[in-house]
């Protein structure tokens, strides 16, 4: 029967495994999603780095446009989001190295690593911003 369907060119869509919607949200799952979201945010965020570098390589007036944006409230929020995504993804990546080495996969430890990722990412973000404002 399957071959007749295929021969007729009417292939039924392949079954997909159950996805996000039917599972209870767990810490490991939330951090897995957060790792992807922060990765995507950084993917877009590199545009900000490119803008910074291209404007700095052009002239003072072009750099001034970038500078004005980053000094604005929206610019500060974007930069804060970028910093958080960067540190969250960094700590999440270290967590993946811990797992790759074979540690921390038992139930209490994997949840604790999830919390450590969330809190560590936020803490590093706040430390970096404190230094940024303190050194001014």
């Amino acid at each position: 029967m399957a071959t007749t369907d295929a021969a007729a060119g009417k292939r039924r869509p392949r079954p997909l495994s159950p996805h996000l919607g039917i599972y209870k949200l767990t810490m490991t799952m939330a951090m897995s999603i957060a790792h992807r979201i922060s990765g995507c945010a950084l993917y877009i965020g590199v545009l900000l780095l490119a803008w910074f570098l291209i404007s700095a390589s052009t002239d003072a007036a072009t750099f001034g446009v970038f500078s004005a944006f980053i000094e604005s409230i929206i610019g500060r929020l974007v930069l804060f989001g970028f910093t958080w995504a960067l540190f969250h993804h960094l700590v999440g990546g270290i967590r993946h190295f811990v797992w790759d080495a074979g540690y921390g996969m038992d139930p209490p430890m994997r949840d604790q690593l999830g919390w450590a990722t969330l809190i560590g990412g936020l803490a590093l973000t706040l430390i970096a911003w404190s230094i940024g404002y303190a050194v001014r």
């Binding site: 490119a50 570098l53 700095a56």
Partner: peptide, 13 residues
């Protein structure tokens, strides 16, 4: 393209 733009700008500076 993004990588090339960043590298180009850094080297130009």
């Amino acid at each position: 393209l993004l990588g090339l733009a960043c590298v180009y700008a850094t080297l130009r500076i």
